Amino acid sequence: MSQIRQVDDLNIESQQVLITPRALKEKLPLSDAARDAVVGGRQVIRDILDRKDPRLFVVIGPCSIHDPKAALEYASRLKALAEEVDDALFLVLRVYFEKPRTTVGWKGLINDPHMNDSFKVEEGLHIARRLLLDVAELGLPAATEALDPTTPQYLQDLIAWSAIGARTTESQTHREMSSGLSSPVGFKNGTDGSLDVAVNAMLSVQYPHRFLGIDPDGRVALTTTRGNPYAHVVLRGGGGKPNYDSVSVALAEGALHKAGVSTNIMVDCSHANSNKDPSLQPLVMENIGNQILEGNTSIVGLMVESHLNEGNQKIPENLDDLQYGVSVTDGCIGWQTTEDAVRALANKVRDVLPRRDR
């Protein structure tokens, strides 16, 4: 008798069944206050994208979340600042739990909450959802990057705005997923600076799609979407060059108009737009404010990487050596710089925003 030869799962070491989205939501349900924050946050962003609300929305916060305690302290401070500048800016907390990697490295709080390659994903999902609930109960809307196609089933009900990163904007999987997201979604231009991938994503995401996903009970399901009408572009620079300057913005406006997609533009103040130097982000914010003063009508939002303390740190072997409130991924501006830059932008655009041609 011939020997039976294995042909599948040759490189699969193990598989673990995780909690279902429905079960996680039952364990950590939305309170009325959290639901109000999510619904209200989404509606404000939609109104800004529809030009019914003249304010800018600013997605601001740590590059990634690794310490829920520090994140919640940041959220409390941001809530107070949001109330102060509410007449000009709508502040949304950046809460990124997943990090794409060019090769290898820490993949974020959901995948590896203990930052030791133990990959306690179910625990990471609990921690992430608990933090989002705490943030929403402060009355603060939250934004995240939609990276893993299954994660939105666990967390999207707590998200007011979603980003698709430069590495995944070209991915058909992420375009299909985005067509079903409940929140508005921003597509970043390619890592080489090309706008084409974002334009194609915006053309795709507005239509219904059918793809394999998971349902609330964790079963593989054919998922049919309605299409997402609130997609827009996020300029983040690329190819070693920024693209937030007035010439680049005008070129983007022309390309978006020619393609027949939304001409709403969001500017990511980090990445290539700040030459990967976080201290330059306030200068980008200042430039955007100046463009609005000079008549720009397409820029509706900004992204800023900010934390309690400036800079970043490598993940130490002994996690007790971590510096509190300092990013473990991209460098961030510190809180005092954040307050100063946000107030300066609000003061600069406060009077002109209501008079912008829309």
Rank of each mutant, 00 (worst) to 15 (best):
V234E: 03
N228P: 04
D321Y: 01
L302K: 11
K276E: 09
I214Y: 11
D192E: 13
K188M: 04
P184G: 05
E310S: 14
A250Y: 11
V326D: 04
A221H: 13
A221D: 09
T225M: 06
T224W: 01
Q206T: 14
T225N: 04
Y324P: 07
E305C: 09
Q291M: 13
I214A: 08
V197P: 02
V326I: 15
C269F: 08
V205A: 01
P184V: 09
L322E: 08
R236C: 10
N243G: 05
V261H: 05
V234W: 00
D268F: 00
G289N: 10
Y207C: 02
M303H: 11
L212T: 14
N200P: 02
K188V: 07
K241M: 12
A272K: 03
R210A: 12
G260H: 05
A252F: 01
D277K: 14
I265E: 04
P242A: 15
G239M: 11
M202G: 07
I265C: 12
G260T: 15
S248L: 00
N189V: 14
A272P: 03
S194N: 13
M303F: 12
D245Q: 13
S298Y: 00
P316E: 06
L203G: 13
V234Y: 03
P278Q: 12
V267I: 15
L319N: 04
G193W: 08
D268Y: 05
E286F: 09
A250L: 14
A198L: 08
L212A: 12
S194M: 09
G289P: 03
R236I: 10
N243P: 03
N243V: 04
L256C: 12
L293K: 15
L251N: 14
N228D: 08
P282F: 07
S306L: 07
T297Y: 06
P242E: 13
N275F: 13
G325C: 10
S270D: 03
G186T: 14
R210G: 09
L319S: 00
L308K: 07
M266S: 04
T191F: 07
V205G: 01
Q281G: 08
